[in-house]
Design a binder for these strands. Structure first.
Lengths: 215, 215
DNA sequence: ATATAATTGTGAAATATATCACGACTTCTT
DNA sequence: AAGAAGTCGTGATATATTTCACAATTATAT
């Protein structure tokens, strides 16, 4: 609750920086410049320096940044020391993709349980994550504050209401529905159809000449 | 190639507007105000009016917007009259989720074929989309300009190079790798781990008091 | 030891996006 | 028919983000 001055655009890039620094560290690299990092993550080097500068002077002029130090700093900043538990609602293909992704390794996020309405799935486990019936939300989900929503759009509203009443604070919504929640709950939407269509639109209307435009 | 003055932020919202207008139309609604639309899509009403205004005066003062007219307008603007063909590389869980999604209905985008290295998948079809072996890219993919990348990160670079040499113009990249492409090719990244971690970061550092912040 | 090259951190400027607030016009109500 | 209510389109303003460009500092080469 301290770093309220950090621009949201910067905050969104932090996980990306973190992962690439991790890669570099594993490769045994000791130092890195904003220019090198820029080429790897495709973000302008001045933007990277600016981003880092919000956290103080992390680098050294003429030298660059010490990979290990930077990594340690971001680990703290991104709360990598403390595991965040998450629930996944909707064990379809998309949901299963999430379950198979090891967020614990790079992100210190653990999907603790999954929920689905399909009796064939209830009682099983995917990548060691137990699947419960959606009706068991109330009894199982105590203490979990973040949910990933990978259910059909029609069910988004009912499930959201349930989650809200159970005290959720954040939802990552993959359904095309734009859900309505009280003011204190944060929702991030990722709409696959919109992303695809936006790409197509950009291709037709914004022909590229200069560098690739990253989203 | 005409509307180069439309802000990218606006362009990204167009597919969203389009889908909701479609919903309204199916519900038999004849007119809609920027205020109503705002509540549905969770975008400020002034922003919506501003967005629409880039395309000219589409509404009527004191009345709002005619749903059918607006829809027709956007259909043209979003190239909904012309089907865009897309290839999907990587038929895992995430890839399968895409294959099962009917983009043709709302977005006039058709996934024409999928590619995978798994012999068990090659030769099958998912939602009527044929799956070919990744080695058949060259022979099968003629004329397709857009690809969805849902493969493991390690394979991202090799596959990207192949796609580039085959004349791709746009890539929707779901791998955590930040791929490198020539300047004239557009890449949009969607990084699920980054999205999740960013949500968690925001929850901890930007406690909400006012309205929910939509991404 | 000195000169050269590299690189940061940041003020200032540029660009992009969102929001306010109101005149003008339309529709609705009575 | 007149007044009230609703709504757009947009100039102006506010906010957010990116990029330029350079002094200051450090590292490297000779």
């Amino acid at each position: 609750m301290d770093q309220n001055k950090i621009p949201q655009a910067t905050a969104k890039r932090l996980p990306l920086y973190y992962r690439f620094l991790n890669n570099l560290n594993h490769q045994g690299k000791r130092r890195v410049s904003s220019k090198e990092l820029s080429e790897a993550v495709k973000v302008d080097s001045a933007t990277i320096r600016r981003d880092f500068s919000y956290f103080g002077a992390l680098g050294k002029k003429g030298y660059g940044y010490n990979v290990e130090y930077l990594l340690g700093f971001f680990r703290k900043t991104l709360d990598q020391d403390e595991v965040t538990d998450v629930a996944l609602i909707g064990v379809g293909n998309l949901g299963t993709a999430f379950l198979n992704y090891n967020f614990l390794k790079n992100n210190n996020i653990r999907i603790q349980m999954g929920f689905d309405a399909d009796p064939a799935k209830v009682g099983t486990a995917i990548s060691d994550v137990p699947i419960y019936h959606i009706d068991q939300l109330e009894e199982k989900m105590k203490g979990i504050e973040v949910a990933i929503l990978t259910i059909p759009a029609e069910e988004a509203d009912t499930v959201t209401e349930k989650l809200v009443s159970l005290g959720i604070t954040g939802i990552l919504n993959f359904t095309p529905a734009r859900i309505t929640v009280p003011d204190h709950i944060r929702v991030h939407h990722i709409d696959l159809a919109v992303e695809l269509q936006a790409l197509v639109y950009f291709l037709k209307h914004y022909p590229l000449k200069k560098g690739p435009v990253e989203e």
